[in-house]
Amino acid sequence: MTEHILTEISTTVIDPAKAISFVSDPIQGAIDTFIGIVRNHHEGRNVTGITYDVHEGLANKTFQDICSEAQGIWPGTRYFVSHFHGVLDVGGISIVIAVSSPHRADSFEACRFVIEEIKKRAPVWKKEHYVEGASDWLPGHSLNVEAQESLVCCGRCGEKRHAG
């Protein structure tokens, strides 16, 4: 765990109070939270629930990377991110993000940054389940761009990318 950053993949109900508790501190005057909820409709179809598939190791690493990047942009901010892995009914909590900062503007902006980056970069997938019994994996954002900036090297010289 990086200082003031806690990220996790959860297979149990995510408690927003845990997120707020982690980022709370007397020096922080603002906490912004984002809570993702399974809704009962999508593009005209009635949804009963969503299965969340997650590459746990890489997803957690991506959450850490995103929060570290945000901390570089908004110094003094603290982060909690928990993403659900498994099946949720309508109303279930899929993700909780909490960001604290001394003043409110940084918390708002950083929290928005974190959820938008997670949607683009974290290896997480959704399979929607519909009232009529069908299920579909949802389309998403290709990671091909991230592949061009990968930290993995060429495969000839070890696990980390070479300098330069």
Binding site: H55, G57, L58, K61, P123, S142, L143, N144, E146, A147, Q148, S150, L151, V152, C153, C154, G155, R156, E159, K160
Partner: peptide, 15 residues
């Protein structure tokens, strides 16, 4: 789609 190991996403030229 992309291929990945436990460290991260593999570049196309990964051997």
């Amino acid at each position: 789609s992309v291929l990945a190991n436990d460290v991260g996403i593999l570049p196309k030229e990964y051997v």
